[in-house]
Design a protein around this nucleic acid. Sequence first.
DNA 1: CTATTGATGGTC
DNA 2: ACCATCAATAGG
Length: 195
Amino acid sequence: MEAKLDRSFFLRDARVVARALIGTHLVHVHGQTERVVRIAETEAYCGPRDLACHARAGLTKRTKTLLGPPGHAYVFLIYGMYDCFNVTCRGEGSGHAVLVRGGEPVSGIEAGIRCDGPGRLGRAMGITRALDRVDLTGDVLFLRARAKGERPTIAVTARVGVAYAGERADKPWRFVDAKSRHASRPSKRFIGRGG
DNA sequence: CTATTGATGGTC
DNA sequence: ACCATCAATAGG
Protein backbone atom coordinates (compact mmCIF):
# COMPACT_ATOMS: atom_id res chain seq x y z
CA MET A 1 0.00 0.00 0.00
CA GLU A 2 1.37 3.39 -0.95
CA ALA A 3 2.15 6.13 1.50
CA LYS A 4 -0.43 8.60 2.74
CA LEU A 5 0.19 12.09 1.36
CA ASP A 6 1.47 14.32 4.15
CA ARG A 7 1.13 18.02 4.89
CA SER A 8 4.04 19.06 2.70
CA PHE A 9 2.23 17.75 -0.38
CA PHE A 10 -0.48 20.38 0.05
CA LEU A 11 1.77 23.38 0.75
CA ARG A 12 2.01 24.29 -2.92
CA ASP A 13 0.18 26.29 -5.56
CA ALA A 14 -3.23 24.81 -6.45
CA ARG A 15 -2.09 24.24 -10.05
CA VAL A 16 0.83 22.11 -8.86
CA VAL A 17 -1.29 20.14 -6.41
CA ALA A 18 -4.07 19.63 -8.97
CA ARG A 19 -1.64 18.05 -11.42
CA ALA A 20 0.04 15.97 -8.71
CA LEU A 21 -3.29 14.58 -7.52
CA ILE A 22 -4.03 12.83 -10.83
CA GLY A 23 -3.55 9.10 -10.28
CA THR A 24 -3.57 9.28 -6.48
CA HIS A 25 -6.15 7.41 -4.44
CA LEU A 26 -8.76 9.18 -2.33
CA VAL A 27 -9.80 7.08 0.69
CA HIS A 28 -12.85 7.55 2.92
CA VAL A 29 -13.07 5.36 6.02
CA HIS A 30 -16.51 5.28 7.63
CA GLY A 31 -17.07 2.60 10.25
CA GLN A 32 -16.33 -0.75 8.63
CA THR A 33 -16.42 0.55 5.10
CA GLU A 34 -13.43 1.93 3.22
CA ARG A 35 -14.17 3.55 -0.11
CA VAL A 36 -11.36 4.23 -2.56
CA VAL A 37 -11.35 6.10 -5.86
CA ARG A 38 -8.44 6.79 -8.23
CA ILE A 39 -8.50 10.48 -9.11
CA ALA A 40 -8.72 11.16 -12.86
CA GLU A 41 -9.81 14.79 -13.09
CA THR A 42 -9.08 17.93 -11.03
CA GLU A 43 -9.33 21.71 -11.29
CA ALA A 44 -7.23 24.40 -9.60
CA TYR A 45 -8.85 27.42 -7.97
CA CYS A 46 -6.32 30.08 -7.18
CA GLY A 47 -7.39 32.51 -4.48
CA PRO A 48 -9.36 35.79 -4.33
CA ARG A 49 -8.01 37.20 -7.60
CA ASP A 50 -9.38 34.16 -9.46
CA LEU A 51 -13.00 35.17 -10.12
CA ALA A 52 -14.03 31.52 -10.41
CA CYS A 53 -12.76 30.81 -6.89
CA HIS A 54 -15.07 31.09 -3.90
CA ALA A 55 -12.30 32.97 -2.09
CA ARG A 56 -13.25 36.01 -4.17
CA ALA A 57 -16.05 36.59 -1.62
CA GLY A 58 -13.56 37.06 1.19
CA LEU A 59 -13.96 35.46 4.60
CA THR A 60 -17.54 34.25 5.02
CA LYS A 61 -19.18 31.30 6.74
CA ARG A 62 -18.66 29.17 3.65
CA THR A 63 -15.11 30.25 2.78
CA LYS A 64 -13.80 29.84 6.30
CA THR A 65 -12.53 26.38 5.39
CA LEU A 66 -11.21 27.47 2.01
CA LEU A 67 -9.22 30.23 3.69
CA GLY A 68 -8.11 27.93 6.50
CA PRO A 69 -5.05 25.70 6.78
CA PRO A 70 -3.84 23.60 3.80
CA GLY A 71 -4.44 19.88 3.58
CA HIS A 72 -8.07 20.00 4.72
CA ALA A 73 -11.31 19.02 2.99
CA TYR A 74 -13.40 21.91 1.67
CA VAL A 75 -16.86 20.51 0.90
CA PHE A 76 -19.63 22.74 -0.42
CA LEU A 77 -23.11 22.27 -1.83
CA ILE A 78 -23.74 23.18 -5.45
CA TYR A 79 -27.10 23.60 -7.19
CA GLY A 80 -28.88 22.62 -3.99
CA MET A 81 -28.08 18.96 -4.52
CA TYR A 82 -24.46 18.00 -4.91
CA ASP A 83 -21.55 18.01 -2.49
CA CYS A 84 -18.27 18.96 -4.16
CA PHE A 85 -15.01 17.80 -2.60
CA ASN A 86 -12.00 20.12 -2.63
CA VAL A 87 -8.54 20.03 -1.10
CA THR A 88 -7.18 23.23 0.46
CA CYS A 89 -3.60 24.02 -0.41
CA ARG A 90 -0.64 26.42 -0.63
CA GLY A 91 -0.98 28.34 2.66
CA GLU A 92 -3.49 29.49 5.25
CA GLY A 93 -5.42 32.46 3.90
CA SER A 94 -4.25 31.93 0.32
CA GLY A 95 -7.65 30.68 -0.83
CA HIS A 96 -6.06 28.05 -3.06
CA ALA A 97 -7.94 24.76 -3.49
CA VAL A 98 -8.28 21.85 -5.88
CA LEU A 99 -11.72 20.57 -6.90
CA VAL A 100 -11.73 16.82 -7.49
CA ARG A 101 -14.05 16.34 -10.45
CA GLY A 102 -13.88 12.66 -11.22
CA GLY A 103 -12.25 9.31 -10.76
CA GLU A 104 -12.36 5.57 -11.18
CA PRO A 105 -13.89 3.38 -8.44
CA VAL A 106 -11.19 1.19 -6.87
CA SER A 107 -12.88 -0.51 -3.91
CA GLY A 108 -15.76 -0.22 -1.49
CA ILE A 109 -18.02 1.33 -4.12
CA GLU A 110 -21.04 -0.61 -5.34
CA ALA A 111 -20.62 -2.11 -8.81
CA GLY A 112 -21.92 0.13 -11.56
CA ILE A 113 -21.75 3.35 -9.54
CA ARG A 114 -19.80 5.96 -11.46
CA CYS A 115 -17.47 8.56 -9.95
CA ASP A 116 -16.99 10.82 -12.96
CA GLY A 117 -18.32 14.28 -12.22
CA PRO A 118 -17.92 16.16 -8.93
CA GLY A 119 -21.48 15.50 -7.78
CA ARG A 120 -21.34 11.80 -8.57
CA LEU A 121 -17.93 11.39 -6.97
CA GLY A 122 -19.08 13.02 -3.73
CA ARG A 123 -22.18 10.89 -3.63
CA ALA A 124 -20.38 7.62 -4.46
CA MET A 125 -17.72 8.29 -1.82
CA GLY A 126 -20.17 9.31 0.89
CA ILE A 127 -18.59 12.75 1.17
CA THR A 128 -20.96 15.44 2.45
CA ARG A 129 -20.64 18.79 4.13
CA ALA A 130 -20.34 16.90 7.42
CA LEU A 131 -16.75 16.27 6.30
CA ASP A 132 -16.03 19.93 5.63
CA ARG A 133 -12.89 21.05 7.45
CA VAL A 134 -11.66 17.48 8.05
CA ASP A 135 -7.86 17.20 8.18
CA LEU A 136 -6.70 15.14 5.19
CA THR A 137 -3.64 13.91 7.08
CA GLY A 138 -5.97 12.07 9.49
CA ASP A 139 -7.53 8.61 9.31
CA VAL A 140 -11.03 9.34 8.03
CA LEU A 141 -10.47 11.05 4.71
CA PHE A 142 -7.02 11.00 3.14
CA LEU A 143 -4.99 10.49 -0.03
CA ARG A 144 -2.52 7.80 -1.00
CA ALA A 145 0.41 8.41 -3.35
CA ARG A 146 0.58 7.00 -6.87
CA ALA A 147 2.29 3.66 -7.29
CA LYS A 148 6.07 4.07 -7.54
CA GLY A 149 7.07 4.91 -11.10
CA GLU A 150 3.52 5.67 -12.21
CA ARG A 151 3.56 8.77 -14.48
CA PRO A 152 0.11 9.37 -15.90
CA THR A 153 -0.22 11.29 -19.14
CA ILE A 154 -2.02 14.47 -18.22
CA ALA A 155 -4.18 16.55 -20.53
CA VAL A 156 -4.79 20.20 -19.67
CA THR A 157 -7.92 22.23 -20.51
CA ALA A 158 -9.87 25.26 -19.39
CA ARG A 159 -12.07 24.72 -16.37
CA VAL A 160 -15.73 23.71 -16.65
CA GLY A 161 -18.64 26.03 -15.95
CA VAL A 162 -16.68 29.17 -15.14
CA ALA A 163 -17.43 31.30 -18.22
CA TYR A 164 -18.35 34.21 -15.94
CA ALA A 165 -14.80 34.45 -14.56
CA GLY A 166 -13.55 36.93 -17.15
CA GLU A 167 -9.89 36.66 -18.04
CA ARG A 168 -9.46 33.73 -15.69
CA ALA A 169 -12.15 31.68 -17.43
CA ASP A 170 -9.76 30.49 -20.13
CA LYS A 171 -6.82 29.55 -17.94
CA PRO A 172 -5.65 25.94 -18.49
CA TRP A 173 -6.27 24.89 -14.92
CA ARG A 174 -8.15 21.62 -15.46
CA PHE A 175 -6.12 18.40 -15.39
CA VAL A 176 -7.25 15.05 -16.75
CA ASP A 177 -5.65 11.61 -16.90
CA ALA A 178 -5.58 11.30 -20.70
CA LYS A 179 -5.83 7.52 -20.57
CA SER A 180 -8.73 7.34 -18.16
CA ARG A 181 -12.34 7.05 -19.23
CA HIS A 182 -13.47 8.44 -15.91
CA ALA A 183 -13.36 12.17 -16.51
CA SER A 184 -16.56 14.21 -16.58
CA ARG A 185 -16.07 15.29 -20.21
CA PRO A 186 -14.67 13.80 -23.41
CA SER A 187 -11.21 14.42 -24.81
CA LYS A 188 -12.29 16.67 -27.68
CA ARG A 189 -12.02 19.65 -25.36
CA PHE A 190 -8.36 18.99 -24.60
CA ILE A 191 -6.15 21.93 -25.49
CA GLY A 192 -2.78 20.55 -24.49
CA ARG A 193 -0.92 18.03 -22.45
CA GLY A 194 2.00 17.56 -20.14
CA GLY A 195 3.00 16.15 -16.78
C1' DC B 1 -25.11 11.72 -30.53
C1' DT B 2 -26.87 16.85 -28.98
C1' DA B 3 -30.07 20.09 -26.66
C1' DT B 4 -33.23 21.25 -23.11
C1' DT B 5 -35.18 21.48 -18.73
C1' DG B 6 -36.43 20.60 -13.84
C1' DA B 7 -34.94 19.51 -9.16
C1' DT B 8 -32.96 21.89 -5.28
C1' DG B 9 -30.55 25.05 -1.33
C1' DG B 10 -26.94 28.03 0.46
C1' DT B 11 -24.53 32.24 -0.35
C1' DC B 12 -24.39 36.91 -1.63
C1' DA C 1 -30.25 36.25 -8.58
C1' DC C 2 -26.62 33.29 -8.98
C1' DC C 3 -24.31 28.76 -9.29
C1' DA C 4 -17.38 24.64 -9.90
C1' DT C 5 -24.45 19.57 -11.34
C1' DC C 6 -27.01 15.60 -12.81
C1' DA C 7 -30.80 12.80 -14.75
C1' DA C 8 -34.55 12.41 -17.64
C1' DT C 9 -36.43 13.50 -21.80
C1' DA C 10 -37.03 14.85 -26.63
C1' DG C 11 -35.22 15.17 -31.16
C1' DG C 12 -31.91 14.25 -35.29
